[in-house]
């Protein structure tokens, strides 16, 4: 009876369940990590450059220096996540070796494989992956992702793509629930998803893992919008530390996610936050500048 199991899918999804109703913030220094923790973040994403800078500076974006990630892990008591390139399983092995709490196999970095994502099942550390629609979400879950997030359009401060992806996933789940069982075979083929996972989503009425919003969230209202659309929690990337008053904005977004359904409180926390990140309209981006297209 004293058998102890680590690294099971249950404990991988379990950590994401504990993050629900919370805000995960991108940080590039231990000092920013501390500001995020003090503002009430449930976790931080440790990286060298926030997506807005990756976008502006160009070049190949890779896993961050493990030394920086370790310094951030030392600075805070909350979980620390870090990003690897799509398909780069050795970057993932390195992050597992230093003990990060969650790995984001992220389209924000330059993909390392144009056909295959990482086989995430053999890892003890859980993975979160981006998805634009139900089929993509279920392909990632089949590969072992224990948490899904919308891709949105990272580093823009424009929430429109996150809304599009949230509505695509949630809308497909709602349609699936009224779909007769004999139609599931063709539907699974159409969305390129495993049949057993399609059946599971129909039964549950949700993804079998936690589903966060990410990519373009910059204000408390953006965060509450994504929560009211049925997301389980929020990632904020460039939106906090590219704004005028990061500590105040971070705390306001945390409160907005808890009280996402209370407009009076949302109004209160939205007051006097200073300038948000300037941002960039997604509709002005050329197709090759859109990070959400990465991933297969």
């Amino acid at each position: 009876m004293s058998e102890v199991i680590t690294g099971s899918f249950k404990v991988k999804v379990g950590l994401a369940q504990m993050l629900k109703g919370g805000v995960i913030m991108d940080v590039v220094t231990p000092e920013q990590a501390k500001i995020a923790e003090d503002a009430g973040a449930v976790a931080v994403m440790a990286l060298e450059r926030v997506p807005a800078d990756i976008r502006a500076q160009g070049g190949v974006a890779r896993m961050s220096d493990p030394e920086l990630i370790l310094k951030i892990m030392d600075a805070v008591s909350i979980p620390v996540m870090a990003k690897v390139r799509i398909g780069h399983f050795v970057e993932a092995q390195i992050l597992e070796a230093i003990g990060v709490d969650y790995i984001d196999e992220s389209e924000v970095l330059t993909p390392a494989d144009e056909e295959h994502h990482i086989d995430k099942h053999p890892f003890k550390v859980p993975f979160v992956c981006g998805a634009r629609n139900l089929g993509e979400a279920l392909r990632r879950i089949a590969e072992g992702a224990a948490m899904i997030r919308t891709k949105g359009e990272a580093g823009t401060g424009d929430v429109v793509e996150a809304v599009r992806h949230a509505r695509a996933v949630m809308g497909a789940i709602r349609r699936l629930q009224t779909m007769p069982d004999e139609e599931l075979y063709a539907y699974a083929k159409e969305i390129r998803a495993p049949l057993d996972l399609v059946r599971e989503v129909k039964r549950l009425g949700r993804l079998p893992v936690v589903n966060f919003a990410a990519g373009g969230i910059a204000t408390p209202a953006d965060a509450a919008l994504m929560m009211q659309l049925g997301m389980d929690g929020i990632f904020v990337g460039s939106g906090i530390f590219k704004s005028e008053n990061p500590a105040k904005r971070a705390a306001a977004i945390v409160k907005a996610v808890t009280h996402y359904n209370d407009p009076a409180i949302l109004a209160e926390v939205s007051k006097g936050l200073g300038e948000p990140m300037r941002g960039q309209q997604v509709m002005d981006l050329a197709a090759e500048e859109r990070l959400a297209e990465r991933g297969w």
Binding site: V4, I5, V11, S77, V100, Y102, K124
Partner: peptide
């Protein structure tokens, strides 16, 4: 003691009486 068993890779399931 918070996080007494370590980080996420040490999270576990066990049967207890």
């Amino acid at each position: 003691e918070r996080n007494a068993f370590g980080r996420q890779v040490a999270s576990f399931e066990a049967d207890i009486p």
